[in-house]
Write a protein that binds this DNA or RNA. Structure first.
Lengths: 340, 340
DNA sequence: CTGTTAGCGCCTTCAT
DNA sequence: ATGAAGGCGCTAACAG
């Protein structure tokens, strides 16, 4: 059978308390000789601590829960990777719960909370969900939220600076490339990221004194197919814009498809801008102009934040932190420069 | 404080054993009225079972560990998604451990095993690792291995049929498109998938009576850059092949880059074949001809297998199962048809 | 059908 | 610096 601290205690002629201390405690509250002897015996017995027992005794799990929306594409790989890496360095395990047909975000969260399965949760909230606030309010496990809206101000939040990203690239398109007829394909209407990107877009236009045309703002769904559809609609308008700003790269890719099949050349006949800077964009021809989002940074930062919370669980004084991850502009060849 | 079964027992005037049975047991070993009363009180007290205690008592975790190699790209998203979905339906949580600078596969596995953190493990083994067999032999937790080699025959294995995939597409290229000058860019030499794909490639050539040229088999590393490099080398050979079979789509994409910068047109001057059928391939122009791998199927199948094992842990009689997931051919426009 | 009684393996005050 | 002893919350024989 597996050795326990009890076996070690026996063989070493000490109490289990001493063994526990020798094996676990940080402070040297055990005489070095005793400790050495215990360590040796523990080795010899091939002792492996039983984390289940430890968990119960300390009522802690050493696990972090990561709640993801329906995952697809390398965006989420990067998040998971970032979170896993930092969690591991901090001595935490990572329990992942993605959304799928059988479970939504709230259910995932509830699963973690109810059974006190994790010490803390990282929660990606792409869009509003009715019961979310209620659930969050009911359970007192530390939570870091990844999203870009101010509905959750009392929690720790990590967000992409969507507004600034959209603003910058649209502003650049106006000021440096002399464009003014710029349309946009948004994400799903409830999506927070999309909303902020749209705000950045409209703000940039406004600041440049360009009137916003509602018929040039079309709702998409963040998928390639959706981008294709939306683009087709834009390209069949009587008054066409010169530029399409897609709220993510997937839809931008869809625009490439649509433009190709409708016989529009990029960037001569229509210019395309994306958002995210996923690998795919580098393979579009001409290369996609887009907004760079440091995805794995998001995962890393939120995990660091969460772990800091977990380490100072008693210290309630720390104010909720709101960290914005800034974005950058990637200049491809999908937007032409107008002379004038 | 949180309510425990003790509180419920008190309030209901029964023992904790009865409460435990009423709340947990499948068989109706509790009188319906008692059970109802207990359920009601438990509700009223807002009782939440403490999974930590349950775990210790049953010495089981209801968790499945997923050990991944260094993750990158949507391939792994699909795996995680597939595993998570099935694990959830089976009542298991998913603990993910990817490899990174601070931890390799063996270490991840050891972490799971040593601390009995999970009931079972799904293990992706892309290439040989010295201590792996040793570790596997030392711990008796059920394991399902995802890879395509016969070194682990005594374990449950799920594998992509790499050989058949490569064979089919090369055979098709020879028989239907009349090619015979076909080169290959392999993956890293130790990689199992790559090795089997190479075998499929050579077998198809052999069966068609085509001599294999070693100078037309170049080692890559499964990355885009690696494909680019390897392709450049091939395109600068004195005797050039007509077709390049890249062992994965990433490298195929790299070939597109290299061909473009060296002025080779696809498929007129050089034909490209990939493997994996990732999203990226659909956006290459001309469209990539490649082998379809049902990635999320792999995750799902291995999880089903593992859960079956966990449910029949006593029944040792079940032989190790080896499941092959078959692949399909995706015909794009990156390979021309020769007349003759 | 239900209660009693030990654990599961470790941690942690409180004494000594 | 160490030991004794009582949890942590739940499960699982074994009786009744």
């Amino acid at each position: 059978m597996k050795a326990t601290i009890y076996d070690i205690a026996n063989k070493a002629g000490v109490s289990t308390a001493t063994v526990s201390r020798a094996l676990g405690d940080k402070q040297e509250t055990v005489r070095p000789e005793t400790r050495d002897r215990i360590l040796q015996i523990s080795n010899q017995l091939n002792y492996r601590p039983n984390s289940l027992a430890k968990n119960l005794a300390k009522s802690t799990t050493s696990a972090i829960g990561l709640v993801l929306p329906e995952i697809q594409g390398d965006f989420y790989t990067e998040i998971v990777k970032g979170v896993d890496e930092i969690a591991f360095s901090g001595g935490y395990h990572l329990i992942v719960a993605s959304s799928h047909s059988r479970r939504n975000i709230v259910e995932s969260l509830l699963g973690f909370m109810r059974e006190s399965l994790v010490d803390g949760v990282i929660l990606m909230i792409p869009s509003m969900n009715g019961h979310l606030e209620e659930v969050l309010a009911n359970y007192k496990i530390p939570v870091v939220i990844i999203n870009d809206i101010h509905a959750f101000d009392k929690y720790d939040i990590v967000s992409i600076d969507n507004f600034q990203g959209a603003y910058s690239i649209i502003n650049y398109t106006i000021k440096s490339l002399n464009h003014s007829k710029i349309s946009m394909i948004t994400g799903p209407s409830g999506n927070y990221d999309s909303q902020m990107r749209k705000k950045g877009y409209t703000a940039a236009l406004k600041d440049a004194g360009i009137t916003i045309r509602k018929d040039w703002i079309i709702e998409g769904d963040f998928t390639i197919k959706g981008g294709e559809l939306a683009c087709s609609r834009i390209l069949s308008l009587k008054e066409k814009p010169d530029v399409i700003f897609a709220a993510n790269d997937n839809m931008a890719a869809g625009c490439y498809n649509a433009s190709e099949s409708l016989g529009f050349k990029i960037p001569e006949d229509i210019c395309i801008i994306g958002f995210d800077h996923i690998e795919l964009g580098n393979f579009l021809r001409p290369k996609l102009t887009t907004v760079h989002v440091p995805v794995s940074e998001i995962g890393k930062t939120s995990t660091k934040l969460l772990i800091k919370r977990l380490r100072n669980k008693d210290d309630k004084s720390i104010e909720p932190q709101h960290i914005k991850i800034s974005t950058g502009i990637i200049i491809g060849d999908s937007v032409s420069k107008l002379n004038n």
